[in-house]
Each structure stands twice: as C-alpha cells, then as structure tokens.
C-alpha cells in the first residue's frame, strides 16, 4: 500500500454562476520516502490537490488515503487532529506567527501532540539545528530575512516528524541564491531524515530536483508524458 493514495478525486467549486473543476477524477500514489514535485500552469489545480492531500480542503468526490486513513471521511475536528499528527506544511509566504519567536513557531505543532516539555524542547532544538538556525531561536519573524523565515517554516513542518511534508511553492517568494539553499534543505529533509515530500512548484528547475515529477494539465495528472492511471474506487 502506498503512503498516499489519491483515488478518482474531483474538485469542483463555484465562481459566481460558473462552475470550475480544477481536478477531474485524478489519481495518484506516493510511496513512503518519495520526493514528488507537482508542476503545472497557474490555476491548473496543483495547489488544490496539495491542499486536499494535506487535509485543509475537501474533495467534491473521490478518496484520499494517507497512511491507511481515508481523510475524506473525517469530520472537521478529526481532520484537524489528523493534520497535527501527520502533516507538515511549508507555505510559500512562510506564514510564521509574528508574535512568536522562531523557537516558539517551531514548537507550535508540538503543542498539539502528547509529549513532555523536555521532549518538546529536544525536538525543537533538533529541528532548529537541522535548518541551521539555532542562533536565531529567540528572534521574531520581523527580525529575520525571507530565507531564514522559510527555514523556520521548514523546521516547523518537520519538527513533529510528520507522515508527509507538503510544500506549496516553497521558493516562490525567494531570490535565486536563497531558493537554492531551500531546495538543498528540502533534499536533506527527504534524503537524510527520510521524510516523504510533496512539493508544488511552478519553477521547472525546482521541480527537477524531485525524484518524481508530475504535471497537472487540464485537470489530469501526467508523469513522463503519460496520464496516471485511474485506480479503482476503494470499497469499505
């Protein structure tokens, strides 16, 4: 069984009187330890798919199974708990909490998990060290550069050792040099920490750094020029 299985997922939403369907019965499997890039034109639905897999958006139809849990069946509250345990989210605009220090931002997801204060401290220190920001632990987001903020964002995403790390345009707002640093860091997260990574990007160079490169075209997922096969709908 793959770590992530997207099965015949359709996402449709209304834009005024118009109905938009960015995803039309798409299917995708991601194996544990994989590094997958999801590319496509603007508005192709790649972020929508990422958000569905991360459990912050709801499918119109289909199933999404992550680590044996069909997240489309979870209530809103259960889905929030599930996200806390299984998903590390890296945002394009970092989305750090401005009133919390770098350390506190990284610690935030751990507050949702049952663990001792000592264990929490240890995990935060490891995550901060992994992104080479130990010296900036007490700094607030406004006191850091964009690249440093994104590294804190990555530390926050990996600190709880999630099942899946999702990154939505993680280099979208960074300069070339910082982009390279962040991509190297993401590669380390995948290679050294063994975390499964799903990254949405419109940057072809960034997308090439992933082991699997998937494109979303006209609501269909393509890999190596072929449409990914539609899987059978799972039955309970």
């Amino acid at each position: 069984m793959s770590l992530v299985e997207v099965i015949n997922v359709t996402k449709e939403y209304a834009n005024g009187e118009e109905s938009i369907r960015p995803l039309d019965e798409v299917s995708l499997s991601v194996e544990e330890g994989d590094f997958v890039s999801l590319m496509g034109a603007s508005g192709s639905g790649k972020s929508t798919l990422l958000n569905l897999i991360a459990g912050i958006d709801l499918v119109t139809s289909g199933e999404i199974v992550v680590a044996d849990t069909d997240i489309t069946q979870l209530s809103r509250g259960k889905l929030a708990d599930w996200r806390a345990r299984h998903i590390g989210y890296i945002f394009q605009t970092h989305n750090l909490i401005p009133v919390l220090t770098a350390y506190e931002n990284v610690e935030l997801p751990l507050l949702l998990l049952p663990m001792s204060g000592a264990e929490r401290r240890k995990r935060v220190e490891i995550a901060m060290a992994a992104v080479d920001l130990t010296s900036r632990a007490s700094h607030y987001p406004r006191q850091m550069s964009g690249g440093q903020e994104q590294r804190v964002g990555i530390a926050r995403a990996i600190v709880s050792n999630p099942t899946l790390v999702v990154a939505d345009e993680p280099t979208g707002s960074l300069d070339d040099e910082t982009t390279e640093q962040i991509l190297q860091l993401l590669e380390r997260v995948n290679n050294e920490l063994g975390m499964t990574l799903l990254m949405v990007t419109h940057d072809a160079d960034a997308g090439q750094r992933a082991r699997r490169k998937i494109r979303l075209e006209r609501g269909r997922l393509m890999e190596n020029g072929k449409e990914l096969h539609t899987a059978k709908i799972r039955t309970a």
């Binding site: 991360a54 912050i56 809103r76 509250g77 929030a80 708990d81 599930w82 996200r83 806390a84 345990r85 998903i87 989210y89 945002f91 605009t93 989305n95 909490i97 401005p98 935030l108 997801p109 949702l112 926050r156």
Partner: peptide, 14 residues
C-alpha cells in the same frame, strides 16, 4: 485572517 488559517492548517481546532 491568514495567521488564523495557518494555525488551523497546523492542526489547531477552531
């Protein structure tokens, strides 16, 4: 708004 949504995305309940 974005900050509150981020907290939800991290797993904090409403």
């Amino acid at each position: 708004t974005r900050e509150l949504a981020t907290l939800q995305a991290l797993g904090f309940r409403r």
